[in-house]
């Protein structure tokens, strides 16, 4: 069996990031769009941890921690904003958010 190197993890991270990107591009439901953004953040976390491990450095893990903290607060604030939007417009369709269109 081949040994697992840094490139394996980076390729996996790319695949996950591409999946998240597809989700962000095709979703119209805002809740599902948030989920796709979580996948993006997770893909980057895997890459950080892998690079840190293969260079014997802890900085990658530190960055992953801060990314997780930011993801948690992003969900809290984003869901709050989404609830306000739902109360005002009764929909979470992305295409209805066109009030700033000139």
């Amino acid at each position: 069996m081949m040994e697992i190197g840094l490139t394996h993890y980076l390729v996996l991270s790319t695949v996950l990031f591409a999946i998240g990107l597809v989700g962000v591009m095709r979703r119209k439901n805002l809740l599902m769009l948030f989920m796709a953004s979580e996948i993006l953040l997770n893909a980057v976390n895997v890459a950080f941890a892998a690079i840190g491990h293969y260079y014997g450095d802890l900085t990658g893990q530190m960055f992953a921690f801060f990314v997780i903290a930011i993801a948690a607060s992003e969900v809290a604030v984003g869901l709050g904003l989404l609830i306000i939007w739902y109360k005002r417009t009764d929909t979470i369709d992305l295409d209805t958010m066109t009030s700033m269109r000139g």
């Binding site: 903290a69 607060s73 992003e74 809290a76 604030v77 869901l79 709050g80 904003l81 609830i83 306000i84």
Partner: peptide, 13 residues
């Protein structure tokens, strides 16, 4: 930042 996010979540939702 987490504290700010918590307060924002409570106030908004």
């Amino acid at each position: 930042m987490l504290l700010v996010a918590m307060i924002a979540g409570i106030v908004m939702a």
